[in-house]
Amino acid sequence: MDLFGEIVEPISRALWSDDFMEYPENIGFMFRTQLQWKNDVMTVPNRIETLIVIETNELLEIVEHCLPVNKTALNKLKEVQLEVYDMQASTYIVLCRFATSTIYTEITEVLENWLKNSNNIVCLTSKCNAIYQDDCHINEKNTFIRHLTVKPITNTFSQVLKSPNLITGLAAGILTYSMINGLHCTSFMVYLEVAPLDSINTKHVLDLLKCYYKGPIKPYKLSTKLPKNNVYM
C-alpha cells in the first residue's frame, strides 16, 4: 500500500563531505546513537506477537490508568524515558514519555531488534482534533482515530488518514522503518478533543487497544483534583 509523505534531509547532511567516503569509519561515528539500554545484556524475545508503541502525554495517561503497566519495566532508555513492559501472551508495550524530533530516528534504531522480531507492530500517537483538515465537517467535541498502515487492516475504530494530515513522531519513524524492511505495522493518530480525559473521550482509544491487547483493561475514570495554587476561604 502506498503512503504519502516527504523525505527530510538529516541535520548531519550539512556536515557531509567527500572525506567521509575516503574514511568509512567516520560514517559510523557520525551516525552512532548515544542512547543506551539500562540492561544492555538483555536478550530481545525471539518471537513477539504484538508490539505496541505509545507516545504523547494524553495517551500515556490513558494507558497508565487503564492497563496494568505499573509493574517493573523489562528495560529502559533513561535519556528519553522509554520503557518496555511484558504484557503476557507474547505482547509487549513500549511507552515513550519524552523525545524530540531530532532523536526519533535514534529511538527507532535502538528498537530495531524488537521491531524485527514482531509479527505485528502497532503505534499510537495523538494530536488535538481541532487541527484535523478535511472537506467534511467533523464535530470538534468528538475523539476520532485515523491510521496509515503497511498492509490494509479492517476495524470499525479508524479510517485511513487523508492528505494533507500527517503522522509524526516515533509513530512515523517506526512506520517508515517497517515499510523499508517489509514489516507489518500500523500507526494510529488519535485526534483528541481539548478537554480533560474522561470515560467518553477515551472510549475509542480503549476499544482500539482491546483489538491488540487481550489482557484486562479498566474504563477510564475522571479524577477531580483541585488546583494546588488556589486558596478557598
Rank of each mutant, 00 (worst) to 15 (best):
L51W: 08
I52N: 04
V53G: 06
N57L: 13
N57K: 11
E58G: 07
L59P: 00
L59N: 03
L60A: 00
L60R: 00
E61D: 14
I62N: 04
V63E: 06
V63H: 06
E64M: 05
H65N: 15
C66R: 00
C66P: 03
C66H: 01
P68L: 09
K71S: 09
L74S: 01
L74R: 04
L74Q: 05
N75Y: 05
K76E: 12
K78L: 15
V80W: 02
Q81F: 09
Q81L: 13
L82A: 13
L82C: 12
E83T: 14
V84H: 00
D86A: 03
D86G: 02
Q88Y: 15
A89K: 15
A89I: 13
S90Y: 12
Y92S: 07
C96M: 08
R97V: 07
R97Y: 15
T100E: 15
T100A: 12
T100N: 11
S101N: 09
T102N: 14
I103W: 08
E106N: 10
I107R: 01
T108M: 07
T108K: 09
V110D: 00
L111H: 02
L111S: 00
E112Y: 12
N113A: 08
K116E: 10
K116C: 10
N119E: 10
N119D: 11
N119F: 06
N119T: 10
N119K: 10
N120V: 08
I121L: 09
C123H: 04
C123L: 12
T125L: 03
T125K: 01
K127I: 13
N129Y: 08
N129W: 12
A130H: 09
A130K: 12
I131G: 04
Q133I: 15
Q133K: 14
D134E: 07
D135C: 07
D135I: 11
C136V: 15
N139L: 08
N139K: 06
N139W: 08
N139G: 06
T143I: 06
T143R: 04
I145K: 04
H147E: 07
H147T: 06
L148W: 01
L148R: 05
V150N: 08
V150C: 08
